[in-house]
Amino acid sequence: MKVIINSKEYQGLPGETLMELAKRNNVDIPNLCHKDGIEGQGRCRLCMVEVREGKKTKIVSSCVYPIRDGLEVVTNSEKIIAIRKNIILLLLLKTPNNDYIKSLAEEYGVKAPDRYVDYKVKENCILCGLCVKACEKMGTSAISLINRGTTKKVSTPYDDPSKDCIGCGACAEVCPTNAITMTDKNRIRTIWNKEFKLVKCSVCGKTFTTDEALQFIESKLGKKEERICDSCRKKIISEKFKESFKYF
């Protein structure tokens, strides 16, 4: 399958989306809600590109648009850049104090008119939904997008501590704007209003992960694992190495 991006020809694989093809060939399409390994969501709309079909052109979001043979795509036309700037402006108004969005706005030369900006807003979430997808991938689905309109947010059911959450922190790691906080303090991990007692390593006594996460691993591996932290495991195996090389 041949696809032309910015008047250069690329070979596409069947079933690929435009974003995947562009990423594979190092064509830059800005995005916030896309991650390899997670299906495109088409939520942040920053990955908009222009697709030409004959005389007509249309604007599509590349992370959910499947490629076709002979597709002609432009990723940086004036129209597209104007759309991107608009989206960034709206994001900036929603999260005026977020470092990542601020740097993005700077990159595109977007400035929010002062009279519209409320600098007291502490919001960091742009509702891209990556955290929800990541949690879904883990098979836990502890969080989801709730409510509609201005009250829309990411949370656990009824904002209560979720019994499904395993405290892995994948949601916090994938968040493009660092909106999710996970704290480990006094052997307690706090995330999504839930408190986890961290597991102590049976060798060194340091805390390393949550019991729920270890149970997740055990269910995947189908066998019981000892509660040993990664650095102690390394020590145990290198100790064996040492024993076998001692008399060389």
Binding site: K23, K35, D36, G37, G169, E173, A213, I217, D230, R233
Partner: peptide, 28 residues
């Protein structure tokens, strides 16, 4: 390892029987 696909759940770090996986918080 494909870092573009990784969602940072750190399960592999705890699952490795030899402790040879490290998670860099700085690099995510």
């Amino acid at each position: 390892y494909d870092k573009e696909k990784c969602i940072g759940c750190k399960m592999c770090v705890s699952a490795c029987p030899f402790g040879n996986m490290t998670y860099s918080i700085r690099l995510k």
